[in-house]
Amino acid sequence: MNTTQTKAAKGTVGVESFRGKLRLRLPRSIETKNRYISTGWQDTPENSKKAQKIAWQIEDDISRGTFDSTLASYKPQHHLTVVQAIKAQPALSLSELWEQYTEYRKPLIAETTLKIQYAAVRNHIAKLPTKTLSDAVQIRDFLVGKLSNDAARRTLTQISACCDWAVDSCLISSNPFHGMAQKIKVVKDETDTIDPFTAEERDIIIKAFEEHSLYSYYVPFVKFLFMTGCRTGEAVGLQWKHISADCRTITFSESVSTQLKIRKDCKTHQSRKFPCNATLQALLLSIKPNACNPEALVFPSKKGGVIRSGHFIDSAWKGRSDRNDGIVTQLVKEGKISRYRTQYNTRHTFITQCLEAGVSVVQVAKWAGNSPEIIMKHYAGITAHVQVPEF
């Protein structure tokens, strides 16, 4: 029990702290059922002054003979006022909760996450037929009906996280979306799975770029993706200041979102050193300008700006069915590679080839900017085929 009090003169009303709250202690000379009057106030200097005023009022009533033995006139009335104020507040809509949640999360997430993922959820919420939390089932059904299962699941996951935060923040009493997202089954899109190119397919793709009249400009960029396994944003944002003068070491410390035109740190928020083998070193030296500006992009677009990954895929890599086939799509049609895979599989190809060559998972993780656990989780099928060496 945590009780603090100051010794009062006989016949006076004392003010004391009990379990962090202030209460009034009545003198023994008074005949009353209760010796204590709870104020419900936190023990603070300001509240102590208010409690002392009530104590003086009681002492004055005792001296005048007008003491209220029921104690009703001495009890603070703030409890009723607070309850009425809470009841009077209108319920927050899902839109209002999402805006408050976004403001709370803003310092904790990357700018790209805020402007892409959170903005997408905000747009989905704006289109809902109802934004009342009690209509959670109707909201779920609307999202499932309008979006793909994957998008509906991701949106409901974010909305549920928002409501969990709102519960913790005492804005709502419970999360009506709890568990909804997990019940939506998502069929994995094969184009998004880890599906590396073989070494032969890699070489065929590079050769096709070299021989293409329009897209040969991208040959160094494509080779670099295959030879480093870096993320696309890291490659398009790479500047000469990130590469040592002799081109033997690359420091991956920044990435560019071409969609938002934002330069940021790497996905893991940690820079990493990448050692160049002789082939990669020769590639970088071959494209390095004589008067090299450290701030210049290593792989600029044809117009000198940042390569827009979406444009590169829609033109050179995959193409668009309403315009023309990209190089990889054409190679699939010609039977030169087995199936179409996204440009991001250049990263998976590098990691897979390293593992198949017997490079340790820890080392591959350092080069790729991942944790060993992530490499083991996503490339377990590859590591399972690595042979135990003879000792």
Rank of each mutant, 00 (worst) to 15 (best):
I159P: 01
S271N: 04
T81I: 14
D246N: 07
I116T: 15
A72M: 06
V121I: 07
A208P: 08
K273T: 06
T228E: 06
N370M: 03
S301K: 08
I262H: 09
V83M: 11
I307A: 02
P294F: 05
E59R: 09
S360V: 13
M180A: 04
A245K: 15
T70E: 02
P289L: 02
E356R: 13
T39C: 12
I159H: 07
A278I: 10
G335I: 09
I116L: 15
A245L: 10
H311F: 13
T157D: 11
G14D: 12
N34R: 14
G11Y: 07
V15Y: 04
D164E: 01
R347N: 12
E356W: 03
V359T: 13
L284H: 03
E201K: 00
N123M: 03
S271R: 05
K241E: 14
T130P: 03
S216F: 07
L297M: 09
I262Q: 01
T6F: 06
A88K: 08
T132R: 15
V137F: 13
L214T: 15
D246W: 09
P76N: 04
P27I: 13
A91E: 14
G11D: 13
K366D: 05
S174V: 10
R272W: 01
E234Y: 05
I86F: 06
M376K: 13
L355C: 09
V121W: 08
G310F: 09
E295N: 15
K50A: 02
R19I: 03
S93N: 08
P196W: 07
S169A: 00
H178F: 13
R341A: 12
S93G: 11
P27D: 11
C162K: 05
T70S: 13
G179Y: 10
V328T: 03
Q387T: 13
P107D: 12
H378E: 14
